[in-house]
Amino acid sequence: MPVRMLSPKLKNFAICFVGVALSLSSCVNLRHISEFSKTSIEGIEQYDSLSTSFFEVCLQDARQESIRKFDIHHTEYDCEQNNKADSITKIIYKATQSYFDGLSDLSQNELTNYNTDNLTQTLATGDFGPLKLNETDVKAYSDISTLLLRAITDTYRRKKLKEYITQAHGPLLKLLQFLELNLEGNLTGKLNVQKSSLKNFYFDFVKDKRLSTYERTKFAEDYFRRISEIDAQQKELQTLAEILREISKGHQSLYNNSGHMTDKQVRKELLGYGSQMENSIRSLRNM
């Protein structure tokens, strides 16, 4: 609406309010934080699609033991500790995911895009008895209040986001490191042990000259097939760990720049970490 159409009193208010509002809200675009958080969530969620777990490795080890003993009847196994290891990993994963959910929700620009169209319409067309409201003025007041409302809530939101990111940084990095330790360290370690156990088992069959060439070849094939399967699982874990490291770097960038989160440099850095993550997510999905 053109400003010249307003009454002089309203015109002054309008200029004053718009000035304040614009100065408060002009730089508040937190989409890059929201985008980075969403990609982080997508990356962390790849945990759910992993083809291995502590329990699975334990179960495979137990079955391998049954094969070694040529006994498929007594197959009791105790994987309680491994179940516990999975639960702990899942707790850390869920906590990290929830944090980024909150960050993503809070930083989306749409959150504070308030809509006062209904209010304007009612005020402008309503019958208030002897009170007559000028439609143009109503629209102007409404637009100004929306802008001001957004400016105030955005400033508050930015201040709170800075607080959350600063407070969460230490604990989040620790959780991500431990998640990495469990997946790329401990679970990969267990798979390395499994590889060694398989070699320990298959070696003598492949070398045994009392067996036929066909049997020995089949044993060797079985061995290499199992090793390839484990290699693929380890590759998944390694890629997920790379995603976790990108998340840590992105959050570090936010933490380092918490005073000026909307700067171009931060946007650029987050975009870089986000696109690295997207590449890793894509390659995980193609595995």
Binding site: Q81, G170, P171, F178, L181, G185, L187
Partner: peptide, 19 residues
């Protein structure tokens, strides 16, 4: 390796609460 994974719980408790 499993023991290491289980031990993590004691070390992350505080961080989990904060997050």
């Amino acid at each position: 390796y499993t023991l290491s994974a289980v031990l993590i719980m004691e070390e992350v408790e505080m961080s989990l609460q904060k997050i």
